[in-house]
Design a protein around this nucleic acid. Structure first.
Lengths: 205, 205
DNA sequence: AAAAAGTTAAACTATTCGGTTAAAATATAA
DNA sequence: TTATATTTTAACCGAATAGTTTAACTTTTT
């Protein structure tokens, strides 16, 4: 094994950046190599092909996002606090990697059989907790009359939709609202609060 | 002019399909030609380059979506009915072209200077009504105490976010919720209602 | 020191793909 | 009919690019 792991990391890191920026088809192996401060031959030495390298990157990133989402769950809170902390944690995590959401969504959208399998595996791995965990939490709150009766799947979707929205549409939003920096700390703090208030009021019995 | 317009349409239609499916870089001129039942030379005869053809497609599609959004506005309604009709109209229109949202978002994300300009122009063209129109409508409703005080930009974003969500994430959702057809008539009818109820309850004074 | 693993550089292959060209065929307009 | 516009075919060019190979070089391990 020797001193190889470090190089593998270097390649993956560079590949990640370039793939996220240019997409699967737009990315160039030489550019990745240059970015990693290595040469092209090494890329093929470690990962056999562009395809395999790409899959590795995608898998890792998706894994990370799911894991982040999972860690945003604090299951032992009452629903109101659970909601607050989820919005807060999730947006904070996305803020640290604003570009990956769009990247992942593109790939998910065009994903063939292979990617379905990859995604299924990752979801199963964080077994049943996600999004099952959130759905159950919602249903539980409904039963306890903490919130009104509603379709928990849609509340789940709406929650996620609002959290990811600015990260997907940032370039468009910066044209529509030229006076605000949409993914800035300041704006997102307001946004968290607005999302929470909308949902919380929206689900009162 | 003669009988050329028809061919131009054929090319644009095929290009649209392929670009939406494979993206700008993934798409191939020959595939587009084959799809149109024509040959590659014709594509360059009508549109000088792949780039120009692509821009034409993107511009047309974006134009269409903005125009759809615009036509989803029925300004003379009270806010509750406005909201109802907007959600209904907007989702209905997206349902007819489920794939373009992801396509446009990807392009917006990686869009350079040129696309910024294109987008700005289209937005200015439907001048000030959108999203200004929605924002103003919201602010007006706040003033009239029809709804509670809130940040209208965020309500706008949340509204759009929830409407587009299933169209962006469909392949993922169909894995998470294998038992439902997320963009089916039936599911979306429920979804419209859930979105409306969440927002409407969420914005009561 | 010797062996093994890791790394580089550069040349090379093969393929894909955007774009061009030229000549012929077909359709339309005058 | 004649001129013009459109369409096809097929070959071709040139650039970009994924991937390979080889030989030399460096670092680590034993």
């Amino acid at each position: 094994m020797e001193y190889s792991n470090e190089t593998e990391e270097k390649i993956l890191k560079a590949a990640r950046e370039i793939f996220i920026r240019d997409g699967r088809d737009g990315a160039r192996m030489e550019e990745i190599a240059r970015h990693a401060g290595l040469n092209k031959a090494l890329l093929h030495y470690y990962f056999r092909s562009k395809e395999k390298l790409y899959r590795m990157v995608f898998q890792k990133e998706f894994q990370q996002v799911v894991s982040d989402l999972f860690q945003s769950l604090e299951p032992d809170l009452i629903f109101r606090d659970f909601l607050l902390s989820f919005i807060n944690n999730y947006i904070n995590r996305l803020q640290q990697h604003p570009h990956i959401v769009g990247f992942l969504l593109w790939e998910i959208r065009r994903g063939g059989e292979d990617f379905s399998v990859t995604i299924k595996n990752i979801l199963l791995q964080n077994d049943g907790f996600l999004p099952e965990g959130i759905i159950k939490k919602i249903n539980h709150a409904i039963q306890k009359k903490e919130i009104r009766a509603l379709d928990s799947r849609h509340l789940f979707m709406n929650l996620i939709a609002m959290c990811i929205y600015t990260f997907i549409t940032e370039p468009l939003l910066s044209i529509i609202f030229p006076d605000v920096e949409v993914n800035s700390e300041k704006f997102l703090e307001i946004r968290k609060n607005e999302i929470f208030k909308l949902i919380w009021n929206g689900i009162q019995p």
